[in-house]
Amino acid sequence: MINGNKETIAQLANEGKRLDGRSLTEFRQPIEIETDISWTAEGSAKVRIGETVIMAGVKLSIEKPYNDTPNEGGIMINAELTPLSSEEYESGPPGMKSIELARVTDRGIREAKAIDMKKLCITPGEKAWFVIVDIITINDAGNLFDAAGLAVLTALKAARFPVVDPETGAIDYKQKTKVSLPLSKEPLPITVYKINGKLVVDPTNEEENASEARLTVASDSKGTISAMQKGGEDSLTIDEISEMVDLATEKSAFLREQINKVLKK
């Protein structure tokens, strides 16, 4: 990929401008959210922010609870940065970028206790529902963290439990109930990038590469922070972090609105 615009991006940021004409704190358009894109998943979503496209799918299964939490179910989030979505990615085992994406998205949901794990328990110590969410990139045009968070939360909200045979306890994946996941909060991660000392949201690939640091902040509708991840080579001042958190909670509310618009229909 041609990546020769680093200096120009830095210069423009200094003037409060960006290559594509947006303001520093403006998301790309369109933002599109679609649910139930996969009949084989218990819940699914496809999200588009600008040219970035991500899918997320939820699968539910019944497993034995972990020994230290016999009364709880569990959640696992996995991410695949597919070679379909960018020439930068290769087939094979997940690299550090996909591991980080999965873990940051996972913490945002898990640490907020967004899903009531106790309600996922069927028989203590024996059976509980486990939630596995897979994030699949379709086109990586930047800002995967926010797009993935948006896709995962939407897929979780759209998910419905499959029918379970009361006699055998077997899951009939072909039939869904009307029961949704016990989701009490709606945390969404927003990543604020620092480019030439300026704070920027929703970067393109080129802007990501031109940035010196980033901070992902997951927050819910009350503004409670449930996960953070600082990335990039440079460090951040406490003042910068304060400003980044404000910006992230504001944008998190903005994206939450987009989900609710779609799901209310």
Partner: peptide, 9 residues
């Protein structure tokens, strides 16, 4: 050699 401006493909 190019300096400044922007590159597109």
């Amino acid at each position: 050699k190019i300096s400044g401006g922007r590159l597109i493909t």
